[in-house]
Amino acid sequence: MPYAHLPDDHEKYDSLWVDFPNSMYDPKKGHALYRRYLSELALADRLGFDGLMINEHHSTVYSMMPAPNLIAGALIPQTTAAKLCVMGTLLNFSYPNRVAEEYAMLDVMSGGRLEVAFPLGTGMEYYSNATQINPATARERFEDAFQVVLKAWQEDGPIEHDGPFYSYRMLNPWPRPYQKPHPKVWFVGTGSPETIELATRYETGYASVFVPKEQQDRAYRSFRKAAADKGQTVTPDRLMFSIFCYVGETDEEAEREGKEHVLWYFNNALRTSNHYRMPPGYVSPAALRALLEAGPGWTTGDQRTTMSWEGIQSWRATLGSPETVANQIGRWLDETGAGRVLCHLHLGDMPHWKTVKNLTLFAEEVIPRLRGRVALAPSTAGASA
Protein backbone atom coordinates (compact mmCIF):
# COMPACT_ATOMS: atom_id res chain seq x y z
CA MET A 1 0.00 0.00 0.00
CA PRO A 2 2.51 2.66 -1.09
CA TYR A 3 1.86 6.38 -1.04
CA ALA A 4 2.82 7.10 -4.63
CA HIS A 5 1.94 10.82 -4.74
CA LEU A 6 5.51 12.06 -4.35
CA PRO A 7 6.57 15.67 -4.92
CA ASP A 8 8.50 16.47 -8.07
CA ASP A 9 11.70 17.07 -6.11
CA HIS A 10 11.59 13.84 -4.06
CA GLU A 11 14.88 12.65 -5.57
CA LYS A 12 16.77 15.23 -3.54
CA TYR A 13 16.05 13.13 -0.44
CA ASP A 14 18.53 10.38 0.38
CA SER A 15 15.83 8.27 1.98
CA LEU A 16 12.09 7.86 1.61
CA TRP A 17 12.10 6.01 4.94
CA VAL A 18 12.40 7.29 8.54
CA ASP A 19 12.99 11.01 7.89
CA PHE A 20 11.07 11.77 4.69
CA PRO A 21 8.80 14.62 5.92
CA ASN A 22 5.26 13.51 6.69
CA SER A 23 4.07 16.95 5.61
CA MET A 24 4.18 15.40 2.12
CA TYR A 25 1.24 13.15 3.06
CA ASP A 26 -2.23 14.24 1.96
CA PRO A 27 -4.90 12.40 4.01
CA LYS A 28 -7.54 12.89 1.29
CA LYS A 29 -5.31 11.16 -1.25
CA GLY A 30 -4.51 8.54 1.38
CA HIS A 31 -8.23 7.90 1.90
CA ALA A 32 -8.71 7.27 -1.82
CA LEU A 33 -5.70 4.95 -1.89
CA TYR A 34 -6.96 2.88 1.06
CA ARG A 35 -10.31 2.39 -0.67
CA ARG A 36 -8.56 1.43 -3.88
CA TYR A 37 -6.06 -0.98 -2.30
CA LEU A 38 -8.72 -2.76 -0.23
CA SER A 39 -10.86 -3.19 -3.35
CA GLU A 40 -7.90 -4.76 -5.20
CA LEU A 41 -7.25 -7.22 -2.37
CA ALA A 42 -10.94 -8.17 -2.27
CA LEU A 43 -10.82 -8.65 -6.05
CA ALA A 44 -7.89 -11.06 -5.66
CA ASP A 45 -10.03 -13.18 -3.33
CA ARG A 46 -12.87 -13.30 -5.88
CA LEU A 47 -10.40 -14.21 -8.63
CA GLY A 48 -9.28 -17.26 -6.67
CA PHE A 49 -5.87 -16.36 -5.28
CA ASP A 50 -4.86 -18.72 -2.45
CA GLY A 51 -3.94 -15.93 -0.08
CA LEU A 52 -3.46 -12.23 0.53
CA MET A 53 -0.26 -10.94 2.12
CA ILE A 54 -0.23 -7.78 4.20
CA ASN A 55 2.69 -6.38 6.14
CA GLU A 56 3.95 -3.69 8.51
CA HIS A 57 6.30 -0.78 7.95
CA HIS A 58 6.66 2.63 9.56
CA SER A 59 7.53 6.17 8.52
CA THR A 60 7.78 5.46 4.81
CA VAL A 61 6.02 6.09 1.51
CA TYR A 62 6.68 2.40 0.78
CA SER A 63 3.72 1.34 2.88
CA MET A 64 0.61 2.84 4.45
CA MET A 65 0.25 -0.23 6.70
CA PRO A 66 1.78 0.61 10.08
CA ALA A 67 -0.99 -1.55 11.60
CA PRO A 68 -1.57 -4.59 9.34
CA ASN A 69 -4.04 -6.19 11.76
CA LEU A 70 -6.43 -3.32 11.01
CA ILE A 71 -6.15 -4.09 7.30
CA ALA A 72 -6.73 -7.80 7.99
CA GLY A 73 -9.80 -6.95 10.07
CA ALA A 74 -11.14 -4.80 7.24
CA LEU A 75 -10.58 -7.59 4.71
CA ILE A 76 -12.23 -10.43 6.63
CA PRO A 77 -15.84 -9.42 5.86
CA GLN A 78 -14.89 -8.61 2.24
CA THR A 79 -13.32 -12.01 1.52
CA THR A 80 -14.47 -15.61 1.78
CA ALA A 81 -11.76 -18.05 0.76
CA ALA A 82 -8.27 -16.56 0.60
CA LYS A 83 -5.87 -17.04 3.47
CA LEU A 84 -4.77 -13.83 5.17
CA CYS A 85 -1.06 -13.79 5.97
CA VAL A 86 0.07 -10.93 8.16
CA MET A 87 3.79 -10.38 7.59
CA GLY A 88 4.11 -8.26 10.76
CA THR A 89 3.32 -7.48 13.53
CA LEU A 90 6.78 -6.43 14.76
CA LEU A 91 7.12 -8.26 18.05
CA ASN A 92 10.00 -6.12 19.30
CA PHE A 93 7.79 -3.03 19.33
CA SER A 94 4.66 -4.61 20.78
CA TYR A 95 3.42 -6.37 23.89
CA PRO A 96 3.55 -10.03 22.82
CA ASN A 97 0.42 -10.98 24.79
CA ARG A 98 -1.51 -8.34 22.85
CA VAL A 99 -0.07 -9.63 19.55
CA ALA A 100 -1.22 -13.14 20.50
CA GLU A 101 -4.70 -11.85 21.32
CA GLU A 102 -5.08 -9.82 18.14
CA TYR A 103 -3.96 -12.69 15.93
CA ALA A 104 -6.31 -15.06 17.76
CA MET A 105 -9.13 -12.59 17.14
CA LEU A 106 -8.36 -12.48 13.42
CA ASP A 107 -8.13 -16.27 13.23
CA VAL A 108 -11.51 -16.70 14.94
CA MET A 109 -13.16 -13.90 12.95
CA SER A 110 -11.94 -15.40 9.67
CA GLY A 111 -12.87 -18.98 10.59
CA GLY A 112 -9.26 -20.17 10.52
CA ARG A 113 -7.91 -18.34 7.47
CA LEU A 114 -4.99 -16.63 9.23
CA GLU A 115 -1.28 -17.26 8.69
CA VAL A 116 1.40 -15.29 10.51
CA ALA A 117 4.90 -14.35 9.40
CA PHE A 118 7.16 -12.92 12.10
CA PRO A 119 9.94 -10.56 10.92
CA LEU A 120 12.65 -9.06 13.08
CA GLY A 121 11.85 -5.75 11.41
CA THR A 122 14.02 -3.75 9.03
CA GLY A 123 16.75 -1.58 10.46
CA MET A 124 14.59 1.41 9.60
CA GLU A 125 11.91 0.29 12.06
CA TYR A 126 14.41 0.69 14.92
CA TYR A 127 14.68 4.40 14.10
CA SER A 128 10.93 4.81 13.57
CA ASN A 129 9.87 3.17 16.84
CA ALA A 130 10.81 3.39 20.51
CA THR A 131 14.52 4.18 20.77
CA GLN A 132 14.89 2.12 23.93
CA ILE A 133 14.74 -1.04 21.77
CA ASN A 134 18.41 -1.91 21.37
CA PRO A 135 19.19 -3.49 17.95
CA ALA A 136 22.04 -5.45 19.56
CA THR A 137 19.58 -7.41 21.72
CA ALA A 138 16.77 -7.46 19.16
CA ARG A 139 16.99 -11.18 18.38
CA GLU A 140 16.98 -12.25 22.02
CA ARG A 141 14.00 -9.98 22.67
CA PHE A 142 12.26 -11.30 19.54
CA GLU A 143 12.58 -14.94 20.66
CA ASP A 144 11.36 -14.15 24.16
CA ALA A 145 8.30 -12.43 22.69
CA PHE A 146 7.68 -15.33 20.30
CA GLN A 147 7.72 -17.78 23.20
CA VAL A 148 5.05 -15.67 24.92
CA VAL A 149 2.88 -15.84 21.78
CA LEU A 150 3.28 -19.63 21.52
CA LYS A 151 2.39 -20.14 25.17
CA ALA A 152 -0.62 -17.86 24.87
CA TRP A 153 -1.87 -19.83 21.89
CA GLN A 154 -1.17 -23.36 23.08
CA GLU A 155 -1.30 -23.58 26.87
CA ASP A 156 -4.32 -23.42 29.13
CA GLY A 157 -4.17 -20.27 31.24
CA PRO A 158 -3.60 -18.55 33.39
CA ILE A 159 0.11 -19.39 33.17
CA GLU A 160 3.37 -17.67 34.01
CA HIS A 161 6.21 -16.57 31.79
CA ASP A 162 9.49 -15.28 33.13
CA GLY A 163 11.87 -14.39 30.31
CA PRO A 164 14.80 -11.99 29.88
CA PHE A 165 12.51 -9.23 28.53
CA TYR A 166 8.91 -10.17 29.37
CA SER A 167 7.39 -11.44 32.60
CA TYR A 168 3.76 -12.44 33.11
CA ARG A 169 2.12 -13.74 36.27
CA MET A 170 -1.26 -14.17 34.59
CA LEU A 171 -0.89 -14.94 30.89
CA ASN A 172 -4.47 -15.81 30.04
CA PRO A 173 -5.51 -14.38 26.66
CA TRP A 174 -9.03 -14.42 25.31
CA PRO A 175 -9.87 -15.47 22.64
CA ARG A 176 -7.65 -18.36 21.58
CA PRO A 177 -6.94 -19.29 17.94
CA TYR A 178 -9.50 -21.04 15.78
CA GLN A 179 -6.80 -23.30 14.28
CA LYS A 180 -5.16 -25.89 16.48
CA PRO A 181 -2.54 -25.78 17.81
CA HIS A 182 -2.22 -22.35 16.13
CA PRO A 183 -2.13 -20.63 12.71
CA LYS A 184 0.71 -21.52 10.35
CA VAL A 185 3.84 -19.62 11.34
CA TRP A 186 6.69 -18.29 9.21
CA PHE A 187 9.94 -16.62 10.13
CA VAL A 188 11.09 -13.97 7.66
CA GLY A 189 14.78 -13.60 6.88
CA THR A 190 17.38 -12.56 4.34
CA GLY A 191 19.70 -15.48 5.01
CA SER A 192 21.09 -14.68 8.46
CA PRO A 193 22.19 -17.83 10.33
CA GLU A 194 20.30 -16.71 13.43
CA THR A 195 16.90 -16.53 11.71
CA ILE A 196 17.49 -19.87 9.99
CA GLU A 197 18.37 -21.41 13.35
CA LEU A 198 15.15 -20.08 14.89
CA ALA A 199 13.00 -21.34 12.02
CA THR A 200 14.45 -24.84 12.22
CA ARG A 201 14.42 -24.95 16.02
CA TYR A 202 10.71 -24.09 16.16
CA GLU A 203 9.99 -26.04 12.91
CA THR A 204 8.25 -23.09 11.25
CA GLY A 205 8.14 -22.03 7.63
CA TYR A 206 10.99 -19.91 6.30
CA ALA A 207 10.23 -16.94 4.04
CA SER A 208 13.12 -15.40 2.14
CA VAL A 209 11.11 -12.87 0.22
CA PHE A 210 13.12 -9.76 -0.48
CA VAL A 211 16.65 -10.62 -1.51
CA PRO A 212 18.37 -11.32 -4.85
CA LYS A 213 18.16 -14.84 -6.28
CA GLU A 214 21.67 -16.00 -5.38
CA GLN A 215 21.37 -14.83 -1.79
CA GLN A 216 17.98 -16.48 -1.53
CA ASP A 217 19.30 -19.77 -2.88
CA ARG A 218 22.13 -19.74 -0.33
CA ALA A 219 19.60 -19.12 2.43
CA TYR A 220 17.51 -22.12 1.34
CA ARG A 221 20.58 -24.37 1.25
CA SER A 222 21.50 -23.22 4.75
CA PHE A 223 17.93 -23.80 5.92
CA ARG A 224 17.87 -27.36 4.55
CA LYS A 225 21.22 -28.16 6.14
CA ALA A 226 20.14 -26.76 9.52
CA ALA A 227 16.87 -28.70 9.31
CA ALA A 228 18.64 -31.93 8.34
CA ASP A 229 21.02 -31.52 11.28
CA LYS A 230 17.92 -31.55 13.51
CA GLY A 231 16.44 -34.57 11.76
CA GLN A 232 13.71 -32.58 10.01
CA THR A 233 12.32 -33.07 6.52
CA VAL A 234 11.80 -29.86 4.58
CA THR A 235 8.62 -29.93 2.50
CA PRO A 236 7.86 -27.23 -0.10
CA ASP A 237 5.18 -25.69 2.10
CA ARG A 238 7.91 -24.59 4.53
CA LEU A 239 9.60 -22.35 1.95
CA MET A 240 8.39 -19.09 0.43
CA PHE A 241 9.94 -16.77 -2.15
CA SER A 242 8.71 -13.57 -3.78
CA ILE A 243 8.41 -12.45 -7.38
CA PHE A 244 7.84 -9.12 -9.09
CA CYS A 245 5.50 -9.69 -11.99
CA TYR A 246 3.43 -8.06 -14.70
CA VAL A 247 1.36 -10.07 -17.19
CA GLY A 248 0.29 -8.75 -20.58
CA GLU A 249 -1.32 -10.31 -23.60
CA THR A 250 2.16 -10.46 -25.18
CA ASP A 251 5.74 -10.15 -23.95
CA GLU A 252 6.04 -6.76 -25.65
CA GLU A 253 2.84 -5.43 -24.09
CA ALA A 254 3.87 -6.60 -20.61
CA GLU A 255 7.24 -4.88 -20.88
CA ARG A 256 5.69 -1.69 -22.24
CA GLU A 257 3.07 -1.49 -19.48
CA GLY A 258 4.91 -2.95 -16.48
CA LYS A 259 8.61 -2.14 -16.67
CA GLU A 260 8.37 1.48 -15.55
CA HIS A 261 6.55 0.52 -12.35
CA VAL A 262 9.06 -2.17 -11.37
CA LEU A 263 11.84 0.39 -11.85
CA TRP A 264 9.89 2.97 -9.80
CA TYR A 265 9.45 0.42 -7.03
CA PHE A 266 13.15 -0.39 -6.76
CA ASN A 267 14.48 3.14 -7.28
CA ASN A 268 11.96 5.13 -5.26
CA ALA A 269 9.85 3.09 -2.84
CA LEU A 270 12.94 1.24 -1.55
CA ARG A 271 15.29 4.21 -1.44
CA THR A 272 17.00 4.54 1.91
CA SER A 273 20.50 4.68 3.31
CA ASN A 274 22.86 2.11 4.82
CA HIS A 275 22.79 4.25 7.96
CA TYR A 276 19.09 3.53 8.41
CA ARG A 277 19.09 -0.04 7.11
CA MET A 278 21.80 -1.25 9.46
CA PRO A 279 21.79 0.53 12.83
CA PRO A 280 24.70 -0.44 15.10
CA GLY A 281 24.22 -3.93 16.49
CA TYR A 282 21.38 -4.86 14.12
CA VAL A 283 23.51 -7.27 12.07
CA SER A 284 25.55 -9.96 13.84
CA PRO A 285 29.11 -10.68 12.68
CA ALA A 286 27.95 -13.95 11.08
CA ALA A 287 25.09 -12.25 9.23
CA LEU A 288 27.32 -9.38 8.13
CA ARG A 289 29.80 -11.89 6.75
CA ALA A 290 26.99 -13.53 4.76
CA LEU A 291 25.92 -10.15 3.37
CA LEU A 292 29.45 -9.27 2.31
CA GLU A 293 29.89 -12.66 0.67
CA ALA A 294 26.69 -12.04 -1.28
CA GLY A 295 28.38 -9.19 -3.13
CA PRO A 296 26.75 -5.98 -4.39
CA GLY A 297 22.98 -5.82 -4.24
CA TRP A 298 20.08 -4.20 -2.47
CA THR A 299 21.14 -5.63 0.87
CA THR A 300 24.70 -4.29 0.67
CA GLY A 301 24.75 -1.52 -1.94
CA ASP A 302 24.25 2.23 -1.87
CA GLN A 303 20.56 2.96 -2.26
CA ARG A 304 21.31 6.19 -4.15
CA THR A 305 22.62 4.03 -6.99
CA THR A 306 19.94 3.76 -9.67
CA MET A 307 18.85 0.19 -10.27
CA SER A 308 18.83 -0.70 -13.96
CA TRP A 309 16.51 -3.25 -15.53
CA GLU A 310 19.56 -5.47 -16.04
CA GLY A 311 20.30 -5.22 -12.32
CA ILE A 312 16.75 -6.15 -11.43
CA GLN A 313 17.25 -9.40 -13.34
CA SER A 314 19.33 -10.61 -10.38
CA TRP A 315 15.97 -10.70 -8.57
CA ARG A 316 12.98 -12.86 -9.41
CA ALA A 317 11.27 -10.37 -11.71
CA THR A 318 9.34 -11.30 -14.83
CA LEU A 319 7.30 -9.43 -17.42
CA GLY A 320 5.55 -11.31 -20.19
CA SER A 321 2.63 -13.17 -21.64
CA PRO A 322 0.82 -15.71 -19.42
CA GLU A 323 2.86 -18.52 -20.95
CA THR A 324 6.16 -16.68 -20.47
CA VAL A 325 5.37 -15.81 -16.86
CA ALA A 326 4.09 -19.29 -15.96
CA ASN A 327 7.16 -20.94 -17.47
CA GLN A 328 9.48 -18.60 -15.57
CA ILE A 329 7.73 -19.17 -12.25
CA GLY A 330 7.78 -22.91 -12.93
CA ARG A 331 11.55 -22.78 -13.36
CA TRP A 332 11.89 -20.88 -10.10
CA LEU A 333 9.74 -23.44 -8.30
CA ASP A 334 12.04 -26.17 -9.58
CA GLU A 335 15.17 -24.23 -8.64
CA THR A 336 14.09 -23.39 -5.11
CA GLY A 337 11.99 -26.41 -4.18
CA ALA A 338 9.62 -23.93 -2.53
CA GLY A 339 5.87 -24.31 -2.55
CA ARG A 340 4.79 -20.75 -1.78
CA VAL A 341 5.10 -17.85 -4.21
CA LEU A 342 4.51 -14.34 -2.88
CA CYS A 343 3.47 -12.34 -5.94
CA HIS A 344 4.05 -8.58 -6.05
CA LEU A 345 1.34 -7.75 -8.59
CA HIS A 346 0.82 -4.13 -7.62
CA LEU A 347 4.16 -2.36 -7.87
CA GLY A 348 4.97 1.16 -6.71
CA ASP A 349 3.07 3.76 -8.70
CA MET A 350 1.14 1.25 -10.83
CA PRO A 351 -2.33 2.66 -11.58
CA HIS A 352 -5.52 0.85 -10.66
CA TRP A 353 -6.39 -0.32 -14.18
CA LYS A 354 -3.02 -2.00 -14.63
CA THR A 355 -3.25 -3.65 -11.22
CA VAL A 356 -6.69 -5.06 -12.05
CA LYS A 357 -5.44 -6.27 -15.43
CA ASN A 358 -2.37 -7.86 -13.84
CA LEU A 359 -4.40 -9.59 -11.12
CA THR A 360 -6.98 -10.86 -13.60
CA LEU A 361 -4.56 -12.21 -16.21
CA PHE A 362 -2.43 -13.83 -13.51
CA ALA A 363 -5.47 -15.51 -11.94
CA GLU A 364 -7.12 -16.64 -15.15
CA GLU A 365 -4.09 -17.46 -17.32
CA VAL A 366 -1.04 -18.06 -15.11
CA ILE A 367 -2.36 -19.85 -12.02
CA PRO A 368 -4.06 -22.65 -14.03
CA ARG A 369 -0.72 -23.34 -15.72
CA LEU A 370 0.94 -23.76 -12.31
CA ARG A 371 -1.70 -25.60 -10.28
CA GLY A 372 -0.36 -28.96 -9.18
CA ARG A 373 3.20 -28.05 -10.18
CA VAL A 374 4.36 -28.41 -6.58
CA ALA A 375 3.68 -31.62 -4.68
CA LEU A 376 3.97 -31.24 -0.93
CA ALA A 377 6.71 -33.83 -0.76
CA PRO A 378 10.16 -33.53 0.85
CA SER A 379 12.13 -30.81 -0.91
CA THR A 380 15.61 -31.65 -2.15
CA ALA A 381 16.23 -28.82 -4.61
CA GLY A 382 19.70 -27.44 -4.08
CA ALA A 383 20.40 -29.86 -1.26
CA SER A 384 23.76 -30.90 -2.65
CA ALA A 385 24.78 -27.47 -3.95
Rank of each mutant, 00 (worst) to 15 (best):
E252R: 03
E252A: 15
E253W: 05
A254M: 01
R256K: 15
E257K: 14
E257W: 03
E257Y: 03
G258P: 00
G258E: 04
G258Q: 02
G258M: 03
K259Q: 13
K259N: 06
K259R: 15
H261P: 12
V262C: 01
W264K: 01
W264G: 01
W264H: 15
Y265P: 03
F266P: 00
N268L: 09
A269L: 12
A269V: 10
L270R: 00
L270Q: 07
L270M: 12
R271L: 03
S273I: 02
N274H: 08
N274C: 00
H275V: 13
R277C: 11
P279S: 07
G281M: 11
Y282A: 07
V283W: 07
A286Y: 10
A287R: 04
A287V: 03
A290I: 08
A290M: 12
L291A: 09
A294W: 07
W298M: 15
T299W: 00
T299C: 02
G301S: 15
D302T: 09
D302E: 11
D302N: 11
Q303K: 12
R304A: 10
T305Q: 14
T306C: 05
T306R: 08
T306V: 15
M307Y: 07
M307D: 10
M307K: 11
S308P: 07
G311I: 05
G311T: 03
I312C: 08
I312R: 12
I312V: 13
I312G: 13
Q313I: 03
W315N: 14
R316S: 03
R316Q: 10
L319R: 06
G320M: 01
E323K: 13
V325G: 11
V325T: 13
V325Q: 06
I329Q: 06
G330V: 09
W332A: 01
W332R: 08
W332K: 05
W332G: 02
D334E: 15
D334H: 08
T336A: 05
T336H: 04
G337C: 00
A338R: 00
A338V: 00
A338H: 03
